[in-house]
């Protein structure tokens, strides 16, 4: 497995898309810290950027990479190697390369301008989202044979988590505002990794009351430490489940 990871990493780290992604993150995060004037404004800007861009890039890149490697994966599967090693090797390679891009793109400005708990929490959330959305991308690609359908599915997943889910949540809140909604709201947040990431960072910022219903609720209900631990646990689950599921499918799949 590690042998596969090594060569997948070596391959992807040379791809122009990953280089461009790294450059974009670096430029955008430096730019946001400069433009905002205040550090906290820069952080909020960077948070929004990370929450939108990272899932999109990981979903689309992960999916396309899987389909483009199909013939190569087939060749690997014909070698004396376990299916599991191939899938996990490919996954760790892609997730590793995108993680490296994230660290190179976000860490230097955060260390320079916002070397605080909030800054590092933001970085950690970015890394967690990178891994878990790559895992979701792999699950989609393993489960769908057709490339166009797979990429479409990836975009749909992104659209849902980045936009639709919050809209649905607001709708629920609006229609049931006469009822106690704290617990259902918590559950709905946990069902969206992007929301989870947002809440975890905002809880660090002490501006959660300004940042909408979800953040305020979370802080109010759980208090910071417990809220963050629960959020982290949910994020881990979001990464682990797709990896297990795609492994399960891949082991039985006809290539």
């Amino acid at each position: 497995m590690t042998r596969i990871v090594k060569y997948v990493l070596r391959d992807i780290l040379r791809s122009r898309i990953v280089l461009a992604y790294t450059g974009f993150l670096l430029a955008a995060s430096f730019g946001l810290f400069h433009l905002g004037g205040e550090i906290s404004k820069g952080l909020v800007g960077l948070l929004s950027l990370v929450l939108i861009v990272v899932p999109l890039v990981c979903l689309v890149f992960g999916t396309i990479h899987f389909y483009n490697s199909y013939e190569f994966i087939e060749l690997l599967a014909a070698q004396p190697v376990k299916r599991r090693s191939i899938l996990i090797g490919e996954f760790l390679g892609v997730a590793g390369a995108l993680t490296a891009a994230m660290i190179v793109g976000i860490a230097p400005p955060v260390v320079l301008y916002a070397a605080s708990t909030t800054g590092f929490t933001l970085l950690a959330v970015g890394l967690a989202l990178t891994v878990l959305f790559t895992a979701i991308a792999f699950l989609g690609a393993v489960a769908t044979r057709d490339k166009a359908r797979g990429v479409g599915l990836a975009l749909l997943v992104w659209f849902y988590f980045a936009l639709l889910h919050d809209g649905l949540m607001l709708l629920v809140m609006f229609f049931f505002e006469d009822y106690p909604l704290e617990k259902p709201a918590m559950a709905m947040i946990a069902l969206n990794p992007i929301d989870l990431g947002r809440v975890i960072v905002l809880l660090q910022m002490d501006v959660s009351a300004m940042m909408g219903y979800t953040g305020a609720l979370m802080k109010d209900l759980l208090g910071s430490t417990l809220g963050i631990s629960a959020g982290v646990a949910a994020l881990l689950l979001w990464a682990a489940l797709p990896v297990f599921a795609s492994n399960w499918i891949f082991r039985r799949k006809d290539l």
Binding site: Y7, S15, N68, E71, P80
Partner: peptide, 19 residues
Amino acid sequence: HTLRRRIGYMPQIGRFPDH
């Protein structure tokens, strides 16, 4: 899967990691 050590395969379309 270890028995595949005794098999060599040349696929119809050879594609390898691009870079």
